[in-house]
């Protein structure tokens, strides 16, 4: 009998410990449940779930990128405009040849070219960020603030501030299509998340990222080439932004100077809600995705419920602060 009581207590503790350890998951489930109740279950129906997946996919790529960077104790403010530039570059190589206002009128490029050009552009910006932070020793905040402006200027120069529209259907379908009921975009996220998960959890490089974020000095002493690893992590992130930009231009069928503006803040907020600590060295891919979905469900829920747009920003801000507050308390309690 006594043994039973002890067992029950241990189980109870186990649940409490699990919940305490997964505040991000709890937040998500709580919000999803509230929304479910308020929409009388309709938010759990497939069309709603599908809408949510489509809406959050592009942001998920940005979050995976910046999530890795934050694990190494960095930050990246250039995301929004890099994605904007990539979307414009990729769309410019996917315009229909008979569109007179195209950036390259009359040219019919092969369908893989927009992806190569876009992902390369993202990767280059990431590499540049990495070099500035690792070898230039610039604070990541300032370095990426600079590249943010460079990306914005480059976008305006490249597009002459015009909308890059009339994108080929064959290009759009890659982002807009579905496999059965599952949107392509969601499938790409699953693949990307799996790769990042493998990288972080099962490679030496991933371990290095955590070590650098946890304690850069100790990481260096233990023989990690910190500079090289930082260049790698920013470049990886840049490649992910590149994919995000290509998918976004495909999804919208266009790109312009306003595309993806502010995405950096959404992505940083998402991974922070997902438990990636700004102090570095802490965080998982699962957390990043949960963070993206949490912000997504906040956005989706308020849209669904028709909350006034001015209040939406307020509510979103409060929810982010509350979620992060509990997460940070968890760490300070240890």
């Amino acid at each position: 009998m006594a043994a039973n009581a002890v067992g029950a207590l241990a189980r109870k503790k186990g649940i409490a410990a699990f919940l305490g350890k997964n505040t991000n998951l709890v937040t998500f489930v709580v919000l999803a449940t509230i929304l479910g109740v308020m929409t009388r279950g309709r938010s759990f129906e497939w069309p709603s779930v599908r809408n949510l997946m489509i809406a959050e996919s592009v942001r998920a790529f940005a979050a995976l990128g910046v999530g890795m960077i934050i694990i190494t104790r960095g930050i990246d403010l250039s995301i929004g405009y890099v994605v904007c530039l990539v979307a414009s570059v990729s769309a410019s190589f996917a315009q229909t040849p008979d569109y007179m206002a195209a950036l390259y009128p009359g040219m019919d490029f092969p369908i893989y070219l927009p992806f190569i050009a876009g992902i390369l552009t993202g990767g280059l910006f990431g590499f540049f960020n990495g070099v500035l932070v690792a070898y230039g020793k610039l604070p990541a905040f300032i370095a990426t603030l600079g590249t943010m402006s460079i990306a914005r200027g480059a976008q305006l120069i490249y597009t002459k501030a015009a909308v890059v529209g009339s994108v080929k259907d064959a290009y759009k379908v890659l982002a807009q299509g579905s496999v059965g009921p599952i949107p392509n975009l969601a499938l790409y996220v699953v693949v990307a998340a799996a790769i990042v998960w493998f990288l972080l959890r099962h490679t030496r490089r991933g371990t290095n990222f955590y070590a650098i974020g946890g304690n850069p000095v100790a990481a260096r002493v233990s023989g990690i080439n910190v500079e090289k690893e930082l260049v790698v992590v920013y470049t990886f992130a840049g490649l992910l932004y590149g994919i995000a930009g290509c998918l976004l231009s495909g999804r919208l069928g266009l790109a312009n100077a306003l595309t993806a503006n502010g995405m950096e803040l959404d992505a940083i907020a998402a991974v922070t809600v997902g438990g990636i600590s700004q102090a570095g060295g802490v965080g998982t891919v699962g957390g990043m995705i949960i963070g993206v979905l949490t912000l997504g469900i906040i956005n989706y829920g308020m849209t669904y419920l028709g909350v006034d747009s001015y209040y939406q920003l307020l509510v979103k801000g409060f929810i982010i602060l509350v979620a992060v507050y509990f997460y940070i308390r968890k760490y300070s309690q240890r």
């Binding site: 709580v30 919000l31 509230i34 929304l35 308020m38 829920g301 308020m302 419920l305 028709g306 909350v307 006034d308 209040y311 509510v315 409060f318 929810i319 509350v322």
Partner: peptide
């Protein structure tokens, strides 16, 4: 807190 805030939308 959420229920109050979201209640504006019914």
């Amino acid at each position: 807190a959420l229920a109050v805030l979201a209640g504006m939308g019914f």
